[in-house]
Design a protein around this nucleic acid. Structure first.
Length: 766
DNA sequence: TACAGTCGGGG
DNA sequence: GTGTACGACTGTA
């Protein structure tokens, strides 16, 4: 007897007795659990004696269904190699057996041995989270046949309506003790008291049973709520049914400190569920930035579980995609050894890499300027140049072979989908609900594109190769120089080059049309897509703060013709700037952006200055809320390892001394600058800080600094402004120093040290 | 004054 | 299940 349904794949995980467990949301809205047997294959190569020994060893095991000698491609070896192919009856058995094999035969090289079941299933059946499938299953709920009816690359997939339940405590548990939790489904919201464990767990189970959610969205679920609920359940002697698969408990992923994107990151423990997804919206960075649409998009294209896709782990998503590509292309996937030791001390530097090209900006205020960006430059170069570890590298961006390698093959559909989504965003009504959703999806894809480039240069990546990484940055510099030549030949002045962007100036060029020809020509000459980021009413490039004669790349702000601001590198963009300073600076910039043209700028500058004055006055009057003064800084060492503790580290030490709560490397520390010793106060233990305790000098200095950045291009002297900030009284009528701030318009300083340098490594001199 | 520690970037 | 790098800048010793 066979039943047949169509439905969306929600969850897939390994199961010791059933092989795989799959959850579907059927067309009729049922939530269906099915099981499926899946054979798993791994390969070994090496000395023939060793291989023979392995063959003998595996032959004895009943879970090994088949052993074969085959010839296959290793991505890093030009000629096909001889391998032993082992077919195992289930994923769980394969994991267990391989662990033993690898210990007994460490000298062999292994392939396809540590690929997740999600990826194996994706390679075999074309599945992914939210894939729409046609399934036949027997009376024991065993899948007999499974067909995927759509693809990861569909632009407008039809999705089921997901039921999401939101759980959150009534306050931030890192600061206070919550007394209730709120439970929300659609518009229905109820509050449950944490006081009585028995009643709470009982009611929660009732709700979970009644609603049967697909998603459980929590605040602090990973670090506080779920551990707390489990503890209360134990206390009450009742099982808490968080999973849809009631045979399972919560799967905990341990907390982890790791190094990524130049920073030490702390990833707290995570609570994963079976048959439904738990997402802690406070810790899932991906969720904060892109919401459900971005998360589902990312899960879809990477064929990774939704819970995993929600928590930003850039590497594993792209790594999963590359493995899937390799499986589909019949290329062996090298076994990824856990090189923990090597990671800690052997962060081998890439000395030959010279990073992206920079052409220092011409400091000062400019009009008749447009910014032109290459669209996803590095991914585009990888695709166009066919840059992959296993194929010959290109000359510039002219490919050396026709057959696409694993990396470009992985990137191409991703790149094309993102371009298509962006295109569609452009056609939708700006800021409409749909436009926002589509752009969230496009943003999620952007992350994957960026990380794919990074992975080429990462020695622990399966498909990484330093030379390939270099070939990409090489290509980038070549393309940017070409673009500069094209622009100059067409009579444009190049104000700044930055890795994948150009700032072009030509007298009288003030509309998008004025830049269409140069755009088209750059695109034609380089063979890559470029887009006009915008035409500026005016843009100001800032010099170094320590030496006014030195221009600083990518420290600028400007206003486009439509009035939107573009701001880079200044205080408001930094994560360690207190909100009060960032908000004041942003308001000042907003004043400037309201000037319709440079002629209106003097008045706008006066307004911006008033914003600054008012902010100072309200600070002196004690009217700035404390939380607006909180500084957030990352802790990157164990506290005892600091040789000269940063303010953040001092606050962390203070908190540790007072409460015993330790700040781990990668965690953020929030604090306030105070008078006396120590000069900081941890926000978590701040209690009620009195107004007199606040280090007013410090905050005045921080605000003045931010104001200087904004006003500097208009000829306002930093020192004078700071002096004024520290000495002026609150009384606006006494505003004498203002007389000293006559606005001068400064256009086009001479290029002080007109040299080129490099972003990232090396210092590239063109 | 030296230098240790943190941030940028993308959206 | 982890991109790399340097340069600018700040705060401490």
């Amino acid at each position: 007897m066979c039943a047949r349904v169509r439905g969306w794949l929600l969850d897939l995980y390994e199961d010791a007795s059933d092989g795989l467990c799959l959850w579907f949301i059927t067309e009729t809205g049922a939530r269906l659990r099915l099981k499926q047997k899946m054979e798993v294959i791994f390969y070994a190569s090496g000395e023939s004696e060793q291989l023979r020994a392995l063959w003998k060893f595996l032959r004895r095991h009943s879970e090994v269904l088949d052993l074969q000698r085959e010839t296959r491609r290793d991505a890093f070896i030009p000629e096909p190699i001889v391998v032993l192919k082992a077919v195992i009856d289930s994923p769980v058995n394969e994991t267990r057996l391989f662990r033993e094999v690898q210990q007994r035969f460490p000298r062999l090289t292994y392939y396809d041995s540590d690929i997740s079941s999600n990826i194996r299933h994706a390679a075999r059946y074309g599945t992914f989270p939210m894939a729409f499938c046609d399934i036949e299953y027997d009376d024991k709920n065993s899948i007999q046949s499974l067909k995927t009816l759509n693809s990861r690359w569909d632009l407008s997939p039809v999705l089921p309506v997901l039921r999401s339940l939101t759980l959150e405590p009534d306050c931030d548990p890192t600061r206070n003790e919550p007394s209730t939790i709120s439970v929300q489904f659609k518009q229905r919201k109820q509050t449950l008291s944490l006081k009585s464990a028995g009643e709470l767990i009982h009611r929660l189970n009732g709700i979970l049973h009644e609603i049967d959610p697909d998603l459980i969205l929590t605040s602090w679920g990973d670090t506080w709520l779920i551990p707390q609920l489990l503890m209360l359940a134990e206390k009450a002697g009742e099982k808490l049914c968080l999973n849809r698969d009631e045979r399972r408990g919560v799967r905990w992923q341990k907390a982890l400190t790791y190094f990524s994107y130049g920073q030490i990151i702390y990833r707290p423990e995570e609570a994963h569920l079976f048959g439904r997804c738990h997402i802690d919206v406070r810790s899932a960075m991906m969720w904060r930035d892109y919401g459900l649409d971005g998360v589902l998009e990312s899960a879809r294209v990477t064929a990774s579980p939704i819970e995993k896709a929600a928590r930003v782990s850039p590497g594993s998503g792209i790594s999963a995609m590359q493995m899937l590509t390799a499986l589909e292309k019949n290329i062996l996937v090298p076994w990824h050894k856990q090189q923990v030791e090597a990671f800690k001390d052997g962060m081998d530097l890439i000395h030959r890499d010279r990073g992206g090209l920079i052409y220092q900006p011409i400091v000062g205020l400019h009009t008749d300027v447009a910014q032109i960006d290459f669209i996803s430059m590095y991914p585009a170069i990888i695709i166009k140049g066919n840059i992959s570890p296993e194929v010959p590298l290109p000359n510039g961006i002219v490919p050396a072979s026709d057959e696409l390698g694993v990396v470009p093959l992985t990137l191409k559909p991703l790149y094309e989908k993102r371009v298509a989504l962006k295109l569609r965003c452009g056609q939708l009504k700006k800021n409409s609900r749909l436009a926002k959703r589509e752009s969230a999806r496009a943003s999620a894809l952007k992350w994957l594109l960026v990380v794919c480039f990074g992975f080429l240069g990462y020695k622990n990546a399966r498909f990484g190769r330093i030379e390939a990484h270099e070939a990409v940055t090489n290509g980038g510099r070549e393309v940017l120089i070409k673009a500069k030549e094209v622009a100059e030949a067409m009579g444009f002045e190049v104000l700044q080059l930055f890795v994948d962007a150009l700032w072009l100036k030509k007298k009288g060029a003030v509309t998008k049309d004025d830049f269409q020809d140069v755009l088209a020509e750059i695109s034609a000459q380089t063979g890559l897509g470029v887009s006009l980021d915008g035409v500026y009413r005016w843009v100001a490039f800032l010099p170094s703060r320590t030496d006014e004669r030195i221009p600083i790349a990518n420290r600028y702000f400007g206003v486009f013709q439509d009035g939107t601001l573009k701001v880079r590198g200044i205080e408001a963009r930094r994560r360690d700037t207190p909100p009060w300073v960032a908000e004041t600076q942003t308001s000042m910039l907003a004043c400037l952006s309201r000037a319709g043209s440079v002629n209106d700028l003097p008045a706008a500058i006066q307004n911006a200055f008033s914003v600054f004055q008012n902010a100072l006055a309200s600070f002196r009057a004690g009217k700035v809320p404390l939380e607006k003064l909180v500084v957030t800084a990352r802790i990157s060492h164990e506290l005892e390892n600091y040789r000269s503790p940063t303010p953040g580290a001092r606050a962390a030490m203070q908190m540790y001394a007072q409460t015993g709560k330790r700040t781990r490397p990668g965690q953020k520390m929030r604090f306030i600058y105070t008078c006396g010793t120590p000069n900081v106060r941890a926000w978590e233990t701040a209690g009620q800080i009195k107004f007199e305790d606040i280090d007013r000098m410090k905050y005045t200095e921080l605000l003045a600094r931010a104001a200087c950045s904004v006003l500097h291009p208009f000829g306002i002297d930093d020192l004078q402004l700071k002096k004024w900030a520290h000495t002026a009284t609150i009384d606006l009528e006494l505003n004498l120093p203002r007389k000293g701030y006559r606005v001068r318009k400064i256009f086009n300083h001479d290029r002080p040290l007109g040299v080129t340098g490099a972003a990232g490594t090396g210092g590239y001199i063109a």
